[in-house]
Design a protein around this nucleic acid. Structure first.
Lengths: 199, 199
DNA sequence: GCGCATTTTTGACGGCGTGTCAAATATTTT
DNA sequence: AAAATATTTGACACGCCGTCAAAAATGCGC
């Protein structure tokens, strides 16, 4: 056997960086090959296709991101947890120069076809899976808060609402690029979910 | 002068139908040319570029959509108005077979680059403009409702919140394709905005 | 230590996309 | 009828995806 001449993980990092900055369709394998100092054909040999490469790179990102969210949701009052959650979310959207937006939301809308009827259904499932995991984490957080008497609404509905807002924030970020606005919306959402009086 | 051999509006309709179903990047001018029975070069001559063609087609859509929203927000109690608003929004996302999603949100995330730093900045501005108009309409509705004593929150913040949720719904639609879920989230949002007690 | 099997690398190809250009075509106006 | 003008048409250059066979480099069995 002949050994690989490049570092698998390094390529994944380079690839995801490009996908994040320029979108999946906007990034060519030639771009990645150039930046990673790898021949284009080698990428096909190692990963199979552009979509497969993206998927592997994305899963790495998703794991890291979930871990960070988990940490953010683990400490303090419910209000503090949700504030940390939104902070992390928005900071993630606004990271990079220029800001890169939310890779999940961008990928989801970019790869188009909805549930089932799509050629890139693997990617769609990966995006959906991350959103589901985030929703579940939020719900757990709310259930725990309810047990402590910090929350009295419907945890499932509230978690879904919050996650919907984060997806909306990702869209507004692309539309206006107005970070203070995003933070204002986040704050307002927390107030609504906690009930204007509670807190 | 030589007259055009094709119907300008007909091409716009065909083009937007394809853009909506397959995304901007996923639709080729060859596709549009075939469906519209027009030569590809004629499209370049008449519209200049793919982006310009999309823009013109999108503006037509945006106008129609705004008019429909305006109607939906014009009658009944505030709760009824918001319900009609979300109904129309979700129905729009779920129209077509298979459902086509939200063209604004899809386009916004697809054409990538955020505010300023983008090659397709005209398109981004068009998307942002529609979102701003929707927000303004919601705000007007809430201000009017407040004057009638049907609402007592911050109209600007609430309008922004609602519009954020609609963008989030567009994303979740792509992720899960679960229409009942979307309607549940919409209902929950209305409850939150109106205050769980108010009606 | 040496040859062989196996894997990776490399370069070329076909197909499709965008956008441009000049030549051909069809009207309107003079 | 002829000139002016705009549209249509087909060919071209360039970039990207994915495939393929040939070349190169290593590990393994002897």
């Amino acid at each position: 056997m002949r050994p690989r001449e490049f570092d698998h993980d390094e390529v994944l990092r380079v690839a995801f960086d490009q996908f994040w900055r320029k979108g999946v369709r906007g990034t060519s394998l030639s771009d990645i090959a150039r930046d990673a100092a790898v021949q284009r054909g080698s990428l096909y040999n190692a990963f199979g296709s552009k979509e497969a490469l993206f998927l592997e790179a994305y899963e790495r990102y998703a794991g890291d991101y979930l871990a960070a969210l988990h940490k953010a949701l683990a400490v303090g009052s419910l209000r503090k947890r949700l504030t940390s959650f939104f902070d992390l979310t928005i900071t993630n959207f606004r990271s990079g120069t220029p800001p890169r937006g939310c890779p999940t939301t961008r990928g989801l809308m970019e790869l188009g076809a909805a549930e089932g009827e799509g050629l890139d259904d693997n990617a769609r499932q990966a995006f959906a899976r991350l959103i589901s995991r985030i929703t579940a984490m939020l719900q757990d957080t709310l259930v725990a808060a309810a047990a402590r008497g910090e929350f009295d609404g419907n945890p499932a509905a509230a978690a879904l609402h919050i996650v919907t807002v984060t997806r909306g924030l990702a869209v507004l970020e692309r539309a206006f690029g107005d970070e203070p606005q995003l933070r204002k919306i986040a704050g307002h959402t927390i107030d609504l979910v906690l009930g204007r009086t509670g807190g």
